[in-house]
Amino acid sequence: MAQVVVVLPWHLVRLTRASGREVCVEVEIPAGSRPTLGDVIDALAERDPVLATALREPVPGERPLDGRRFRLRPYIRAFAGSVDLTPAGLTAHLPSKCLDGREPVRFVGAIAGGTE
């Protein structure tokens, strides 16, 4: 298991039961591979399902249940240290520096001003 430090956006802390911006979750390390961003959100879901609902959404048009597939919400970006995981989405593998606590996984609300 890896202890992954997750940094949440301020809004999400207020919306959920998170006690602060930094949350530590246990993520299983698959044999011969590395955990993904989706695994981190699964671990967050065990802590508080609202966190997962706020960070990912069902892929439109996909059927749920066994064929369920999620994607990162459109205005959410994810970083491992300074590496942008957003393009690869939930399938992005975490770098080793996130698995030994040297760097956090950081979720950021995309800058999207201009509305009311």
Binding site: P9, H11, L12, L15, T16, R17, D48, P49, V50, T53, A54, L55, E57, P58, P64, R73, P74, Y75, I76, G109, A110, A112
Partner: peptide, 27 residues
């Protein structure tokens, strides 16, 4: 919010405190 989607919140004390519900709506 456009960022985190839709969350249903519930209060049992007339709105003084609120709890976010894991409201996963799925078609």
């Amino acid at each position: 919010t456009p960022w985190y989607g839709n969350v249903i919140q519930r209060s049992h004390d007339g709105g003084r405190s609120w709890t976010a519900l894991p409201s996963q709506f799925e078609y």
